[in-house]
Every structure is written in C-alpha cells, then in structure tokens.
C-alpha cells in the first residue's frame, strides 16, 4: 500500500471515528441539537472520505461501485501489514 493510499485510509478512519463517537453520545442524548449537527457533518465527511478512497484504492464496503470488480478480494485485508 502506497503512502498516499495509507494517508487516505487514515482519513477514512478519522472521519469514521468521529461518526462512531458522535453516534454513542446521541444514543444517550438523542435530543441534543449541537450533537445532531456535529453528527450530520461527520456523516458527510465520512461519506466523502470513504467514496474518494474506494474510487481510487479499492472498495471498503460491498456497496462501493469498486466492489463489482476484483478489488474486494484482491486489495489488502486489514490485518495484513500492507493493509
């Protein structure tokens, strides 16, 4: 995996983590307007980072268009050191 691909994947992880963390807060504070706004921003940022990564380096989800090719099978799995 190239340095550019690793940086892009790290970007997906960062946006994905913001989404995970905001989700748990909203689970116990579902009416918190500020958290709702943060969550909507995190959703958009995650979707953009994920789509950009998948288009260039291979699918992360089976509904990525790139998953129709061989990338799901052939691109590195997360436990591989090159992954």
């Amino acid at each position: 995996m190239s340095a550019e691909a690793m940086a892009a994947l790290r970007g997906v992880m960062i946006e994905g983590f913001a989404l995970d963390e905001a989700r748990l807060f909203l689970d116990t504070h579902p009416g918190d307007a500020a958290a709702q706004g943060f969550y909507a921003q995190a959703q958009a940022a995650y979707a953009a980072a994920e789509e950009a990564y998948a288009a260039q380096y291979g699918p992360l989800r089976i509904d990525d268009p790139a998953a129709a090719g061989s990338g799901w099978v052939c691109a590195p799995w997360p436990w591989e050191t090159e992954g």
């Binding site: 994947l9 790290r10 997906v12 992880m13 994905g16 983590f17 995970d20 699918p59 992360l60 989800r61 089976i62 509904d63 799901w72 691109a75 799995w77 997360p78 436990w79 050191t81």
Partner: peptide, 15 residues
C-alpha cells in the same frame, strides 16, 4: 451486519 474492510484504528507492527 455488513463488513467494512478497514480497522477502526490502524495497526502496523514492524517487529
């Protein structure tokens, strides 16, 4: 559940 082909936090161990 559907799988996401990435970790939540990166793991790259050299040694």
């Amino acid at each position: 559940w559907r799988y996401e082909k990435r970790l939540q936090f990166p793991v790259r161990i050299v040694t």
